[in-house]
Nucleic acid binder design. Structure first.
Lengths: 147, 147
DNA sequence: ACGATTTGGTCAAGCTACTTGACCATGACC
DNA sequence: GGTCATGGTCAAGTAGCTTGACCAAATCGT
């Protein structure tokens, strides 16, 4: 593989990721929610029983201060609540509200719509293969804003 | 494909793209250049005979003001020059300096190194296939910062 | 059991990379 | 040749992160 192709591969990845996130965000807004792409990724972490600010920060690949500010935003918009943590009095458990669950489902639907567009071009098998390969490359890396 | 998988696919794309850009940027800095990831993508556009600020803006998916600021930065660091445009007195042609070419090559090498790590995991064929599929999905979309 | 250190969280301030808005100079179009 | 479009810059504003300081609760060492 030539050097110039390696940069092109990176560009293609970024373009694809940007395309998807934009479509999803548009879809979420079209369903009556206001937000930014980071919400969706926060939701995927919160959906499994809630999370602490620090856990969220790790998941998103930002400082805990930034995660805390994001949570402020989500609280203000009614998507999550800060509850006392059942096992650690220092920590707070961030959990989705009913509206938060609705927004999560909206994001999943929008994502499914966007991916469906890809499936029409590549076919189900290739999209699944793409996913499989990507997971093997960057299994659980933080979701940093990309460039 | 289930809804939740669609979001996971997006996350995987972002993680992979973020991983690559980080590795490349580290590699470029290790080779003695200072910069940020956007430089590399600007260089790929400038490498083919230069470009105007507006063309660069389109390529990167930002406003022309933002592109102009990026060019300021690149000029300050000695990577590019603003020349009068040979065919349009309003425009300026942004071209790489010798140091700009060196940095471009460094970015390509770093990208090749990063991709090589992927090839070791997936094999050359799968990486090439990945690239092929990505290009078919998001052929020439702008390279927006991803989330 | 108790002082020292670590960990979870927030407050405050600062910065980077973008945006929008205003503007000028040149080119394109009847 | 006047009108509008296009390329570029200057200026100001903003979003979303960062670093640094700090407090309270938990954990560790002795």
């Amino acid at each position: 593989m030539q050097n110039s192709e390696a940069l092109a591969l990176t560009a293609a990845l970024l373009a694809a990721a940007g395309d998807l996130t934009r479509r999803i965000n548009d879809g979420v807004e079209a369903r009556g929610f206001e937000g930014r792409p980071a919400y969706g990724f926060a939701f995927t972490r919160l959906a499994r029983g809630g999370a602490t600010v620090t856990e969220l920060a790790t998941h998103l690949g930002v400082t805990k201060q930034a995660a805390s500010q994001l949570v402020d935003e989500l609280v203000r918009k009614g998507y999550v609540e800060r509850r006392p943590h059942p096992e650690d009095a220092r920590a707070r458990l961030i959990v989705l509200t009913e509206r938060g669950w609705e927004c999560t489902r909206a994001a999943e639907e929008a994502a499914a719509d966007a991916v469906r567009a890809w499936v029409e071009v590549l076919g189900e098998g290739d999209v699944r293969l793409l996913y499989d390969r990507l997971v093997r490359i960057a299994p659980y890396g933080p979701l940093r804003p990309a460039w």
